[in-house]
Each structure stands twice: as C-alpha cells, then as structure tokens.
Design a protein around this nucleic acid. Structure first.
Lengths: 164, 164
DNA sequence: CGAAAAAACTTCAAGCTTGAAACTTCATAC
DNA sequence: GTATGAAGTTTCAAGCTTGAAGTTTTTTCG
C-alpha cells in the first residue's frame, strides 16, 4: 500500500529511532541533572561542575594531570583551569608539580576534599536513586549494556577508564 | 558466604545500578552533544542552545510563550530571554504580543528561521545517526521504552508535549 | 646540535546558565 | 474598587563553557 515514498522521507524514517533515543536520553539526563544540581546547591552550596571534578579526582588517588582531567570530564582544557582555581582557593584540591615535566600539573584532592566529596557522593547516590526509582535494577543493567557500544572510538588517554 | 555486610555498604550496593546507569547516560549524552555542538558551529556557525530553541519553536507553529519555551527546554526563564534576544537580532525568531495579556510574549519562527532550522534538522539527524550507528533501531526502541517511565511527574504545562 | 613540531597549560572574549531580585500586569478576595 | 498575591518576564552577578590564540616546555629529527 505504501507507494513510492520520496527519498528524503524514507531516509529520515530510517534515522528516526536513533534521533528519538537521543532526544529521550537528553530529556532524562536533563531531569536528573536538574535534581542533582539543585540538591548540590541547597545541601552543599556547590555546583555540578565542581562535583564532577571532585568525583573524577576521587577515583585517582595519585592525582590527574589537567589534560587528563578535562579528557575524563569531556570538557575543554580552559574550562578545567577555572574550576580547579576555585577549588584550590576553597582548599579542596591541591596542585602538585609533575617532576620531569615542567609543563604539566598534577591535581589531587586534599584531605578536606576527600571528606567533602564522600558526603556529597553518598547524597548524590540517594538523589539519583530517588529520581530513577521507577527503573528496576535489571532495566538499568539492560540500558547500560545497550549503550555500552557507544563511544568506543580509537581515542584513549591511558588513565581515563571507560568503565562508566 | 556473604556475612553481615554493613548497612551503608548494602545500601549503596542497592543504589549502584541506578547510579551506574545515570553515569552511562551522562557519558553518552556528552558524547553526542559534543558532536552536535561541533558540527553546528562548523557547518552552521551556531550553537546548541540556539538550535534547541529553534527546534522547540518549530514544533509549535502558533508559537510559544517565553515560559512555555523555558519549560519545554528545561532551562531557567532568564536564560531563554538572552537566547531569544540574539535570535531576534538574527531574524530567525519573532516576538508577538499576546492579546489579552500584556505580561506575556509569544515567540515564533520567522520564515527565515523555519528555513534555517529545516537545514539544521536534516544535518542533525545525520550526525546523530552517525554517532549512534552501533545502536540497532530495536535497541533504540528498547531504551526509549525503558526510560519512558522517568519524569512522569504531576507537572504538566498544557503545551509541553512529553512525547520525547 | 638546533630548528620545527608537538604537548601541556593558561588566557580571553563571547555566549550560556542559574537563582535571586525586581518589575509589570492580571486575578482574587474582601 | 482596592489591596494582596500570583503570573509572566527581565535583569543581574557569579559561575560555567567553548574555541581560538598565546606561553612555556618537551620531543622529534634532519
């Protein structure tokens, strides 16, 4: 019955599931982000980007170079510079010179940073759990499995673990 | 074999799948966003937020009020003000007074805005399809179905269709 | 060795984003 | 009607974000 669909139409039809899933991902992500952002502000007087940085640093006790950090967070280099600057002022983060390379800087959590982040991380888990309460664990695993194929590009910067 | 896990540990274990799926969503979203952002700049000399606004307006020929727009995009009111300002300057968007309510403004695509957006939307579909090429359509539908349970809050602002 | 290129950062302007505070207009209840 | 509050926006400061351009250090290789 479907006679002679124009090329452009059938083409965009083929593209539709992926665009739709993209829009859905975007929507859910924004919803969760908003909750996390609001709670971070209300309960810890901090921001999501700062939390993201702390989370990344918490995973690497030995610290991360600025470039490794921006790669892990998928943001620009210049961006990280400013955030780290403020975190250093607040005493949550420490800059350590890399021996043998005067260009690079290692960034690491301070004791205070670790403690602060521990509290935030626990709260963060609760918030996310609350927003996603309608997702059974099995469904989560399923989504994780399906989406695991994405972003398997040849790019890999040694320290960035892709287990997320 | 598993003897007496401390309460906090078992609690965070229960929370883990949801946090993990959240991190995965965040990761995939950032990857796709980056691609779309770069291409929008390179090929259309525009930004993602601008594209988002045009996309929202394209869905509603009759236009959207500023507040409806910010609700649809899930961003703050003040944010939309600035973006619309620039879009108006560029002639892509039109502000129309709402008759019967001097507080509100209706925002609508101009002819030029519609044409520009049409080109961008086609390209956008191609980019997204390319990034998500490893996701079979069936997998997309599955993810969409699973995530569809999220964000079913009692909030509903009439014009905002949640079919995404 | 000594250029030339690459790597690691920082700086900067322009734009995005938020939440709070203000402002105008509208609706409600005395 | 008129005060009181709600609704719709805009303004603003602070912070985030990007991409481009610039600085310093390291590496490559002729």
């Amino acid at each position: 019955m479907s006679v002679q669909l124009p090329d452009e139409l059938s083409a965009s039809s083929a593209a539709r599931p992926r665009v739709r899933v993209w829009l859905k991902l975007l929507k859910v992500t924004k919803i969760v982000e908003q909750v996390v952002r609001e709670n971070l502000r209300a309960e810890f007087d901090t921001t999501l980007p700062r939390f993201d940085v702390l989370a990344a640093l918490d995973r690497f006790e030995d610290g991360l170079k600025m470039s490794e950090l921006s790669a892990a967070l998928r943001v620009s280099n210049g961006n990280v510079t400013g955030i780290i600057e403020r975190l250093v002022i607040d005493g949550l983060v420490l800059r350590v010179p890399v021996e043998g390379d005067k260009r690079a800087t290692l960034v690491r959590l301070t004791q205070k940073g670790q403690e602060e982040f521990a509290k935030m991380a626990a709260a963060h888990a609760r918030w996310v759990n609350a927003v996603l309460e309608d997702l059974p664990p099995a469904a989560c695993e399923q989504v994780i499995g399906i989406l695991d194929t994405i972003g398997r590009a040849p790019k890999q910067t040694v320290k960035v673990d892709d287990n997320d």
